[in-house]
Amino acid sequence: MSYKIIVLVKQVPDTKNITVDAMKPDGTVNRSALPTIFNPEDLNALEEALKIKDKYGAKITALTMGPPNASEVLRKSLFYGVDDVILLSDRKFAAADTLATSYALSLAIKKIGEFDLIIGGTQAIDGDTAQVGPQTAEKLHINQITFVDKIQKLSDREIVANRTTDYGYETVKAKLPILLTITAEANTPRPFSVKKTLTYKNAISLIEKHDYDEEYLQSNNPNKPFIITTWNHEDIGAEIEQCGLNGSPTQVKQIENIVLEVGESKEIDNSEDGFKLLISELFSEHIIG
């Protein structure tokens, strides 16, 4: 049988490679100076979906929420081999915490329609919360398996998967439909398909800046770019009070630069005498012994 899969993807700032330039003099992060990337574990999620497609056949839809330029992760998803992409974008969604994000995503998923599997990365590297997956599953009233590092078996009604635990792993059998979150250990994502990259390299969302003329985009010209389906809050029937900042119970009270503090600090002379002093002090204070 063929599966209907929705993959949740996110464009994130590359927090693992923060350079000095990305920090403002007051110690806060200058987001605009950071390059954006495809959230790493979302690539693992996408790879799992593509593996299912290779083995059993599937229609994969990649869904993201973000600003207009988040189309970039959808273009890349098309290069990897997904069948359809949806951009959820609206100023009303801005500054959403994980609850408001899962609200919008769950409505978009309902609009997409039937599905067997929703697959996302375990966590995004900008927030590291791992909350959006489970929160979305709850809003859809479906089951979940989080921290999946291996899908062992899939049949039309059931999945068997290994999930990492704090002391090893466990094998879970569950019924479909279900939401899975995938860890970085699950697989090594494949490279882009050259053919798909050529087909979709000009794919755009109409809310992105572009130079095409409207008439051409509406025409039947076979060379016109692929149009990325783009939905705003009205398209998914979202209530404004539950979107973005309005719909976010959590608020940032304050952001601080990390201040490195130390009580007493001394330089130990790099000599026999220096080490003797150090070790004696640690002995006398019962730090070692």
């Binding site: 709850e138 989080t146 635990t165 959590t250």
Partner: peptide
């Protein structure tokens, strides 16, 4: 914030529509 705590807490927050701060 164990594997199971991180599986459970967000579902509860989502169902009760309350905030949750991780880690």
């Amino acid at each position: 914030a164990t594997v199971n705590g991180r599986d459970l807490a967000p579902r509860i927050a989502s169902k009760l529509k309350v905030g949750l701060t991780a880690d």
